[in-house]
Design a binder for these strands. Structure first.
Lengths: 202, 202, 202, 202
DNA sequence: TATTAATCGAGACGGTACGTCCGGTCTTCCA
DNA sequence: TGGAAGACCGGACGTACCGTCTCGATTAATA
């Protein structure tokens, strides 16, 4: 990723280039995916040159990494005293984040795996892991509040939450209306709870 | 994709070329992903020429499509009279298929989406859609057998089944032991059923 | 060139294919030269297939050879009793032959030499050599008739005759009016003769 | 052809690449002709890449054009006060030039004509036209010196000079010994002059 | 204030892949 | 058998991209 500009003498780097380039990379990763990402095209659209890009990021994979790492992940939701509503809120935030142009193709790139291990690890560390931990904590709070069963299989339950969205995306079906609440309801019941207001399938 | 050989005149296509090429494509898609797939390298490894490949598949995307579409999808499981066990079996087959070297990166390529709309559509049609329908039918049979609730949200429940696997893969965590049975159990309960034998989380 | 159809059994070759193909080859050699001559295009335009062409002529060079060899070369002029007029007639015939669309590029192909030694040799044997011998004999008859000098350098004089045309073609200048008679006059004088009627340069 | 390097910014082109490539092109044009000229092979032999070549010359025809246009034309012979000897000298220089490996096939390519009009026009302009003018001037000086006839047909006489060589090449006969002097003698007599020393045919 | 060192823009360089086309050979069906 | 159809190998063409490099012209911090 972008090395911190050397402290000493010489012309300092133009920080606006970093911004414009990363924004452009995100836009293109979103619309065309990693494969079709052309450094030359990015440079042109960002109003700079390939050299300026390669000076900051050693190669294309690192450039994409940097762009992803900067994604303004929907920060930790303020926890309320209702774990079920927290789950709905978390999933709504997730859907908002992943449904935005950048979202899906990025996930695809990540699942490509071996293309660039570092790229994937960075994404997991910055985006996936924190979300999983937030989800996990919500379910544990539901358990602590006595709403969920003792022996509920939380490890797997966590994967159901966001997994539902991936499966729908892969199938090419639009996320159904009220998706977040309906998933939360299913997961809640799967763990032995009773969702307060039953979301109605359409 | 490979046009069906015209019935009449002309030298017939060498069917072994189709086989060797597609096998090679699958091997390379698995190990390096779509991006690094080189038609020339495939031709060389398959002991043929680029021309013979382009005669069959108009471009690289279509070639990959064909290779994927031929994946020996774990065929429709023979339905037993126990819907829950059918669900476990279906998920086990899914896991076997998607865990094989080819599996994950292929899914990633598909989620890249707009890289090649046709590629994705072909994959959905040949692989994803049939699986979703099989899952859906299993849940409906559970419902018909009185094991699942009337108003169960089957639309979303279907997405939970395979989605769990995608979420785990994206997080980089190995699918937990007994994954298929545990997911089935959660989904069953989410739909109001009671899994016959409670799978124990580890 | 086209092998004589085998005498014996089996379906006889369609002679109209020979005609149509060679005509097409001549047309294309004329308009685009040997390089751009595509066997497939010839076959299509002649309403037949590549195989039928390759059955008759072993390769492209031979095909072109055959087309050239069939050029209705202005056959041996009926010798008159006036060698000078015979020379004019021969050169006029030569100019007619070589000035027709096919002519020039063919000469170029021949001078390419090493492209296909056989092609060149065939052309020399069928077209160039006979013409040189006819020219030589005309000059010798002029010598025998006492019109040309004893020690005239006939070897080189022969090359002047047609060479004049090549030089003009290479320079891109149209062959001057009355070209045949004017060349004949110059060659005649070069060999010590006096052309009966002086052709006037324009 | 190679665009003049832009004055200003950017890494300047490596001029040695121009040199090496054009030399290689000339060598190959000479030995194999235009048709067999492979850009990839040229690049390899010249120690560079196809991209570097296509950056300079838009296509193969333009590349060949450039190579020909750079041919070190046998410069204007220093005129003596003996026009006949000047003619011999000019023809000797011509023979030396055209007999060098490059010579004949190049002429063949040029006579192909319509393959690439620009290619041919460039060659005429740089090589053929200047030579024709030098020959013409020599003959005119012979005329001015009273050695040649008033009404000599110089237009055609010029074509005899080099044409003799082309005709011999086309016939596949080696240029006879003393060729230049013998042609000069014939042309001189054709124009009414008397060559100072009669060259003896062998 | 003059020097100096790093950046910026521009673009060439070696590689490599793409998709198209052609030449010459072959293999099959049909007349 | 010959003709039509078309697949086969090999290889060239012209385009596009990647990551590296060399230029001249800027632009700040330092001497």
């Amino acid at each position: 990723m972008a090395a911190a500009a050397r402290s000493g003498a010489g012309r300092p780097r133009d920080p606006s280039i970093d911004r414009r380039v990363l924004a452009e990379v995100r836009r293109r990763l979103a619309s065309d995916g990693y494969e079709s990402l052309s450094v030359a095209a990015v440079a042109a659209s960002a109003g700079t040159t390939r050299a300026a890009i390669y000076r900051r990021w050693p190669d294309k994979a690192d450039l994409a990494t940097a762009a992803i790492a900067e994604l303004p992940e929907a920060g930790p939701q303020p926890a309320t005293d209702d774990p079920f509503e927290d789950l709905v809120a978390e999933l709504t935030a997730f859907q908002r984040g992943v449904s935005r142009p950048d979202g899906v193709p990025m996930v695809g790139t990540m699942l490509l795996g071996s293309t660039d291990a570092l790229l994937v690890e960075r994404y997991r560390e910055r985006v996936v892991r924190p979300r999983r931990e937030r989800l996990r904590r919500i379910l544990e709070r539901g358990h602590a509040a006595g709403e969920l069963d003792e022996g509920a299989d939380l490890d797997v339950a966590v994967t159901l939450c966001t997994g539902s969205w991936y499966a729908a995306a892969l199938a090419g079906v639009p996320p159904p209306p009220q998706w977040a609440r309906r998933v939360a309801a299913l997961v809640w019941r799967a763990c032995g709870g009773e969702p307060p207001v039953e979301a109605q399938p359409t």
